[in-house]
């Protein structure tokens, strides 16, 4: 028994080492990673990508975040923190948006969480559009909150617009219009109210759900 346990433990350890080594080796072969000049940064990036791989976290947004840090001459420890923080947000976004979400949606969800969009908003947005990408909607929501519309009001407006069938193009236009108004001196929430209501007024009302009861005669 002891032998078997020891043997099993050795096999498991070997497998783990092979897995980590395999991941690290793969990362080492990645030209974008090997092109990182600073050795400490390269090590940090490979380590974080390995951890992400083991957890099934998509690699591109993490690598992109790391390379952004390299472009901005961030220290290796800063890059490690940024990548670790993004991993957490991507994991949360995955839990909220669902297993079939695209990489773009997860990235957009992570961005939304980073500015303070509540978890329940991401869930509600996914429920509102279960079968298509909501990366644009998440992006617009992130921008609105980043421009100091309260997360609650921004969330409500985006959800209302989604419920009424607003297109990605309409939402992008809404964002542009709000930014233009804010630049002209309007408060962000007043601008959102103005333009959001405007779009809502042009969209069809949702069909009331039939409750199964016949109309009274």
């Amino acid at each position: 028994m002891k032998f078997l346990n020891a043997r099993s433990a050795a096999v498991a350890t070997a497998a783990m080492l092979v897995s980590i080594y395999g991941a690290t080796a793969a990362a080492q072969q990645d030209p974008q990673v090997t092109a990182i000049r600073d050795e400490a940064t390269r090590t940090v990036v490979m380590e974080q990508l390995s951890i992400a791989r083991d957890r099934g976290i998509p690699r591109e947004p993490l690598l992109s975040r790391a390379l952004e840090g390299v472009a901005k001459n961030a220290s290796s420890s800063t890059i490690r923190s940024a990548m670790a923080a993004l991993q957490k947000r991507l994991t949360r976004a995955h839990d909220l948006l669902g297993a079939s979400s695209t990489v773009d949606e997860l990235s957009a969800g992570a961005d939304a969480l980073s500015v303070g969009v509540p978890d329940k908003t991401l869930k509600a947005m996914r429920e509102a559009a279960p079968r298509r990408s909501i990366a644009v909607e998440l992006g617009v929501l992130t921008e609105l909150v980043a421009r100091h519309v309260s997360p609650k009001k921004a969330s409500q407006m985006i959800l209302d617009l989604m419920a009424r069938g607003a297109t990605g193009a309409q939402l992008t236009a809404l964002n542009a219009a709000v930014q233009s108004d804010v630049a002209a001196g309007l408060t962000p929430e007043a601008a959102l109210e103005r333009h959001g209501r405007g779009i809502l007024s042009l969209l069809p009302l949702p069909t009331p759900a039939f409750n199964g009861n016949p109309r009274p005669r």
Binding site: G22, A23, R55, G56, E60, S100, D104
Partner: peptide, 15 residues
């Protein structure tokens, strides 16, 4: 990264 065991978080849709 080649053959991997099932991840904790299923991979997102392919780009």
């Amino acid at each position: 990264e080649g053959n991997v065991s099932a991840p904790v978080m299923p991979a997102a849709n392919t780009p």
